[in-house]
Amino acid sequence: MKRDYLPLLLIPVLAAASFPLVGSWSSWVTLSVAGLAMGLMIFIMASGLTLTFGLMDVLNFGHGAFIAVGAFVAASVMLALGAWMGADSLWLNLAAIGLAVLAAMAVSGALGLAFERVIVRPVYGQHLKQILVTTGGLIVAEQLLKVVWGPDQITLTRPAALRGAILLGDVAIEKYRLLAMAIGLAVFAALALTLARTRIGLLIRAGVENGEMVESLGYRIRRLFVGVFVVGSALAGLGGAMWGLYQETVTAAIGAQVIVLVFIVIIIGGLGSVGGCFVGALLVGLTANYIGFLAPKVALGSNILLMALILLWRPQGLYPVAKR
């Protein structure tokens, strides 16, 4: 038997089906690129969440806090490096963004470590308490953000080299979206390679299927889980930083806004599946952009509809994870 490519096909099908509706070639390309960029950013934020659920049956409703923290830390670093950001050199611009992103990931990752210890660990296996406590963590984290960064939103300006669009004939593609796509694809490739080729990756996949057996083979799944949790938090920080730069504003509510899309994506993908999360994120990003163009009023509702349709087709999501 071969791998299941059917869900993957949905992406080109969706893109092709929307083409006649959008009508114009240049708008369609622009929308598709925007959709893929948005999808990849959501994927970055969602990947860790789906893996921690698969591994330990833990769903962190406070995941949005890491997204918000990443956005704020990155914003602060970029504002501090204003000279580099404003410089007329692509390399200085990228260096500033790179530093900002690294700082965002470091802080979010560290916060993830603390969150796992204090908030998540005492409530393993108790779903109701888990939902409540992690939501409580989100409330507290949001308030702490306001304490540190103040209640007002921060406005970011993209550096000169990443403003505006590249023109290919009559098709305009925003430069920042290309960067977001590149980073998103790099993260996906790194995750996919890690999961497919490394011992840690094998252990994670095995643990998602049957954690008890992984322990019976002599591996401490708790450590594995903490590692995944921290990496997932750091990735959420990365995604938050990129999202903030994409929106050019950062508010404390950013986490709560994006987390809804993240949840939709991991439900669509099948909880625990990174591949499903990837496909789901692209579908959500594309749908949001096509519908946003065709019928702006129902843009967010369209993702709920997408989720409902996919769950009708595959009730466990696109790539259900085989569970013991």
């Binding site: 011992r199 094998l202 252990l203 996949r205 095995a206 998602v208 299927e209 049957n210 008890e212 057996m213 992984v214 019976s216 083979l217 002599g218 591996y219 994870v321 085989a322 013991r324």
Partner: peptide, 21 residues
């Protein structure tokens, strides 16, 4: 275990790689 608990998503080789600690 009675359920065998093989890792279905992993190949035979990968199952044994993990078992060889």
């Amino acid at each position: 275990p009675e359920s065998m608990a093989i890792f279905a998503d992993l190949t035979v080789q990968e199952n044994l790689i993990l078992a060889a600690r």
